[in-house]
Simulated scan of single mutants.
Amino acid sequence: MNLRFSSLIVVLYLSYVQGYANSTDNCIDISTYLDVETNSTELEMCNYSVERNCEEMTKNVCTKVPEITCTLVPVPNCRNIDQKVKAHNDYTEQTVLEVQSCVEDGVQVLLEVDQQPTCENVTTQQCDSKWITLPTGEKVWGGNENCEDVTKEVCTLEDVFTEHEYPSITCTPGELLQYYKPHLVEETVTLRQTKCTPAAGRVCRTTLREECIDVTFEECTETLVPSCVGGQFDIPYQPFDHRLKCIFDE
């Protein structure tokens, strides 16, 4: 019996039995396995091996090879050092002075104001002030006692005016006097020093020259070699017979 067809019958049978089993719980499982059966199949089975064939070859190969030629050139290493110093940068400027000619032509008065003290005697009374305490505890003034006259000198400053006479002078411009006026100017000057360290550098030139060489190598190829053999294969299987024994109510 074909294995696929047998499996289909088992599935249909189980569906049928399950329908009955769902209608009652009064069942027992009496399933079992049937006798072992065999499926026979004729098959051809193959494997392979790899064969490698190699050939040694030699070829001459040429290429451009760079060739570098260098010469030395002087390259001093220099640096600048700045220094700031103070220095005078004086100059003169031509200037004209207009000379004034002055003469006395009268009198002018200068009024001087001074303050001088003026004093007089002033008499005042000095008394003891009397205070009375009321039954409520409040203190009130009760008059003056033991009064006496005291005279003292009181002074005040008053303005005193004094006239001073001085000659009146009138000036008029006269001749022009030329001269050189000096100007002193201090500036900051930057002094630069250059310090060098002797050194040499390389100047290189690259040229190409052709070189050739024999190269020996091996080229290989691989091929598949199949090997097949036929035979019969017996595949055993054991069908499962699923059964339930049930008692149904009438």
Rank of each mutant, 00 (worst) to 15 (best):
N89D: 15
C27Q: 07
C62F: 04
F5Q: 14
M57K: 09
S49K: 13
G201A: 08
V65F: 05
K84G: 03
Q232I: 12
P167L: 01
N80T: 15
D234G: 06
P167W: 00
I213K: 12
N53D: 06
L97K: 14
E37R: 14
Q18K: 12
T123I: 08
E187T: 15
P226M: 06
C70L: 02
W131K: 13
E222Q: 08
C119V: 03
M45H: 05
C70K: 06
T156S: 14
T38I: 05
K181E: 15
V107H: 00
V140K: 11
L72S: 12
L184K: 15
L208N: 14
V73D: 05
F233L: 11
T162V: 12
S49R: 13
N22H: 09
Y237K: 04
C119R: 04
L157F: 03
Y180Q: 14
V150C: 03
M45L: 11
D29Q: 04
L12T: 09
S129N: 08
S168A: 09
E175H: 10
S6N: 11
F217Y: 15
V229T: 12
L43S: 13
I169S: 00
D234Q: 13
N2G: 08
V17M: 12
C246D: 11
L8F: 10
P135G: 13
Y180E: 15
T133H: 06
P182S: 11
T58W: 00
T172N: 04
G230D: 10
E153L: 04
P173R: 01
T206L: 01
E37N: 12
V73H: 12
M57L: 09
Y16A: 11
I9P: 00
N26Q: 04
L34W: 09
T162P: 02
N47W: 11
A87Q: 15
E44R: 08
N60F: 06
P239L: 07
Y237N: 06
V103Y: 01
T71S: 12
S168W: 01
A87C: 05
I213H: 10
T118Y: 07
K59W: 00
S6F: 05
V154W: 03
V36C: 10
V122P: 00
E218S: 13
D35W: 09
C70A: 02
P167F: 00
L3S: 14
E42R: 02
W131T: 14
I28H: 14
M45V: 10
N77T: 10
